[in-house]
């Protein structure tokens, strides 16, 4: 059975990751920053020349909010797949933490909240970057940050579920190739999904990235009609998934 979570102890785990991160951030921040900007330049400027406006928006402006969404997503997924797995299996960090008053439930909560913190952080960096390019139209964009944090929890939960069941670190290839990459391509970041065959656009509706992309586009452009649906969808999904990583990680770690 799951025990109640002492948030203070979960925060200690979060703090540990923060301490480690602040020692290493210089190298990792640059990498996380470079890739989205490359997408923006390659697709927005390179490909954008050959593409007419989408829904009356120049192509680079169309994809910019989507790059916020995808960067934010990948920050959480990398953290809770490779990051969590290395701490669990190679560095034995979890063994060290669980030998203290911190219980497994608190450890998992700390991991998830750290990943979603990174989600919000990297999303914010991209927001700053695209506003530098003049691609942000509205101050509503500030309201996007808590949304990034919340959707970060979904991506963290999904990744953690994957981490709890993979036989080895190589198995993450399947997760990325079969799940993350298709979601990245077909969630409305690069083109509207309405034009896809109906069954694909229906699948897109059931992915968190689709809703996050809608929310990003809404807050960045200031056209926030209807995005309440996306935000409610995100909150509901966080809650629906919530117990699963705890149960599966407990099963994996406590023998």
């Amino acid at each position: 059975m799951l025990r109640t979570i002492n948030l203070k102890r979960a925060f200690r785990v979060w703090q540990r990751h923060f301490s480690v991160y602040t020692r290493l951030y210089k190298s990792s921040i640059a990498l996380n920053f470079v890739e989205p900007v490359l997408y923006l330049v390659a697709f927005g400027i390179g490909l954008g020349v050959y593409i007419r406006d989408i829904n009356g928006v120049p192509y680079i402006k169309y994809i910019a909010p989507g790059i916020v969404a995808s960067s934010s997503m990948f920050a959480a997924t990398y953290e809770c797949t490779y990051g969590t797995y290395v701490r669990m299996a190679f560095q034995k960090t979890f063994d060290a933490i669980l030998a203290t008053p911190v219980n497994i439930e608190e450890l998992v909560a700390g991991e998830l909240f750290w990943a979603s913190t990174k989600s919000a952080f990297y999303g914010t960096i991209i927001i700053l970057a695209i506003s530098f390019f003049g691609l942000v139209d509205s101050f509503f964009v500030i309201a996007l940050i808590p949304v990034l944090f919340t959707s970060g929890l979904i991506f963290a939960e999904i990744s953690m579920i994957c981490t709890a069941i993979v036989p080895g670190i190589d198995s993450f290839n399947y997760f990325y190739t079969l799940f993350m990459t298709p979601m990245f391509l077909f969630s409305g970041i690069f083109f509207p999904v309405d034009n896809l065959p109906p069954f694909i656009s229906k699948i897109a509706f059931w992915t968190p990235l689709y809703h996050l992309t809608n929310a990003c586009r809404g807050f960045v452009s200031g056209k926030i009609d209807g995005i309440i649906i996306d935000i409610l969808w995100i909150i509901a999904f966080v809650l629906i998934l919530a117990p699963i990583p705890y149960i599966l990680m407990k099963k994996r770690i406590i023998k």
Partner: peptide
Amino acid sequence: KSRLGILPQDNNLDLEL
């Protein structure tokens, strides 16, 4: 656990710190 001290068999120090 708050009253125990544990020295594990494997080295699980935080290598980055």
